[in-house]
Amino acid sequence: MIALFWISFIVSLVGSALLITQKHAVYALLGLLIAFGASAGVFLSLDAPFIAVSQILIYAGALAVMFLFVLMFTDTRTEEDVGLPGAVGSRAVFDPATGRPSKKKKKKADEEEKKPALSGMVMPKPMAVAVSLALLVCFTATIVTLPSDYNRFGPLPSAYDGINFEGVERSADQIKTDPNLLPFGSTEAVSRTIFEGFPLAFEVVSLLIFAAVLGAVLLARRHLVGIPGTQDVAKESGHA
C-alpha cells in the first residue's frame, strides 16, 4: 500500500506538471489523464476502492473523451502559438484558390521544426507563479500545524469490530451472520451510505445532471433561428 501511494504521488506530480507546462492542448489533456489515474491509485491506497474505480470510469473515461471531442471541434492552438489578440484573426488563413493553408502558415510551420525541444512548453507567468506558490505555502503551513493525531491513520473498523451501520454493538456470534457489517470502503458500504444516509442529495444530483444535459443540448445545438448566438451559423450553412 505504501509503495502504491508513493508511486501514485510521483506520477500525479508529473501529470500535473505536464498539464500546466504543455502548450499543445492534447498533451496537456494527457497530463490530466495521468494525474487522474494516479489519483485513483491514491484512493486505492487510502482504502477507497469504489471511489478509485469510479474515478477512472468518470474522469479518465467520460470526461477525457468529452474534452477530446471538443478539442476536435475547436482550434487547439493556444494564444502562445498565434499571439494576442487571439480572436478572429487567429484562424488558419486558407487560400481560396487552392483550398489549402496559405504559404504564410507553411513558412511558420517550417520555422517551428527548427525550434529546440523546450518549444512545446509554456513560459511561466510570474504573477501566476507567485500567487499559486503563496497559496501552496499557506496550505503547507496549515497542514504542518495540524494536531498530532493527523500523523498517522488509525486502524480501520474491520467487519468484525462488532459495530454496524446502526451503531449497535453485536456479539461475536451475531457478527458472522449480520449482513449489516461491511468492510470499509466497499461498494456495499458506500451504497448504504448513499441510500440510507443521504438519499435527498442523491436525488438532487440526478436533477442537476438532468438540467445540465438539457442545457448542454440547448447550448451546442445548431440552426436556432431567432436566438442570437446561433443565427449566424444557420445563415452560414444556408449560403454554403
Binding site: 504521488f9 506530480l13 500535473s16 497542514i143 500523523n151 498517522r152
Partner: peptide, 16 residues
C-alpha cells in the same frame, strides 16, 4: 499506510 499530512500536501500541491 501513508501519513495523512503527506496525502494532504499532495492534494494542496495539485490544487495549486
Amino acid at each position: 499506510m501513508p501519513e495523512p499530512k503527506v496525502v494532504l500536501f499532495l492534494a494542496a500541491f495539485l490544487f495549486c
